[in-house]
């Protein structure tokens, strides 16, 4: 069926490429409708470099969580706790620095260590007790957020971080928002892990067939543990750049981020049933959502209604459903096609 189709044609119609076309169309649409000139003749809105950097800056945290979730979802797992772990690690980071008087780098390393422990708790419950990841991480989703709020009594917010730290979240380095470099680094690392190492191969195998992976002698539990611990570590990184961007660490940091991140991963073509998907797809998914969200905020009509949040939620949902439909549509069409030809 698809075997005689030329390879380039299949590639141009892959999920990732289709998403890229959507992203370009989306971007062009907002470029032409969301860019205006103000009274003083200065170009404002979507089409400015500053706005583009802003989009990038604001995508980094959800982007990191989406990168963390891609290997997890490839193994047919899920991690709902990443947003809560982001909040907990932000609070712990603030506490290590402010209350314990540690230097920023030491506090950051400790916070990342805590992220790893958070991930390890998920991993231990999933691999040793064989509980479904959805239930385990639903539990730790509440647990981590609850811990963060208990530590701060729901009131304490850590602020007054040094300028040198805020540079990471608010300034530019070598032309790009500083945290974008970190994001890029993690993206490359996760891409290599998933697409160029035996680890990524194992994630897919486990996602497609956990029994098959076990019978092939693959260390299934160790690989599963790796994806959840990695998710914890990346969540902690996201917590640090979140704190640096806002200049404050608070217990509600990252609330609801896990859902945006899952949306980005699935939009990027990773199957929620595990096995198939790609890291570049995830990045495109993140970009598509970020451009949509920011572009809408620049549309005059949306600005008048003051409904950017609502609109972006609505359209993200629509885009996700469209992408899912689009990914199964070719299959449906290919089953219909032969029947149309008279026998």
């Amino acid at each position: 069926m698809s075997t005689d189709k030329p390879a380039w044609k299949a590639r141009l119609l892959s999920h990732e490429m289709l998403l890229l076309y959507v992203l370009i169309a989306e971007w062009l649409f907002f470029y032409f409708t969301g860019t205006t000139t103000n009274r003083r003749g200065v170009i404002v809105g979507f089409g400015t470099i500053d706005r583009q950097f802003d989009i990038l800056r604001h995508s980094c945290e959800i982007g990191l969580l989406a990168l963390a979730l891609t290997p997890v979802i490839l193994t047919a797992g899920i991690d709902l706790s990443v947003g809560s772990l982001l909040g907990l690690c932000a609070i712990l980071f603030g506490k290590f620095w402010h209350d314990a008087g540690l230097s920023i780098p030491v506090a950051a390393v400790l916070a990342i260590g805590c992220g790893a422990i958070g991930g390890a708790i998920n991993a231990a419950l999933i691999t040793t007790l064989r509980l479904p990841p959805l239930i385990v991480t639903l539990g730790t989703y509440s647990l981590f957020r609850g811990l963060a709020e208990a530590i701060t009594h729901g009131a304490v917010t850590y602020t007054d971080f040094p300028e040198s730290f805020l540079f990471l979240g608010q300034e530019r380095w070598l032309g790009l928002p500083t945290q974008a470099w970190l994001f890029l680094l993690v993206a490359v690392a996760v891409w290599l892990l998933v697409h160029r190492t035996t680890f990524g191969r194992s994630f897919r195998t486990i996602g497609f067939s956990p029994g098959g992976a076990r019978y092939a002698g693959l260390p299934v539990n160790r690989r599963l543990a790796l994806v959840y611990v990695l998710a914890g570590i990346i969540s902690a990184l996201a917590a640090i750049i979140y704190t640096a961007r806002l200049g404050q660490a608070k217990a509600d940091a990252g609330t609801g981020y896990e859902l945006f991140a899952i949306t980005a991963v699935v939009l990027g073509g990773t199957s929620i049933f595990g096995g198939s998907g790609s890291v570049h797809g995830t990045l495109l998914g993140v970009a598509a959502i970020a451009v949509l969200k920011n572009g809408l905020a620049c549309l005059p009509v949306v600005m008048r209604m003051n409904a950017a949040e609502e609109m972006s939620g609505l359209l993200t949902g629509a885009l996700l459903l469209l992408a899912l439909t689009g990914s199964v549509l070719p299959k449906i069409l290919s089953t219909l096609r032969p029947r149309r030809q008279p026998a």
Partner: peptide, 29 residues
């Protein structure tokens, strides 16, 4: 079908599945 072959993966991936450390030194594919 459940244990012998991972049906969704290519034949090549299936054949190297038990020799990852040997054919992919340093875990690089």
């Amino acid at each position: 079908r459940r244990h012998g072959v991972v049906l969704d993966l290519p034949i090549a991936h299936n054949m190297t599945m038990a020799i990852h450390p040997r054919i992919f030194p340093g875990a690089w594919l």
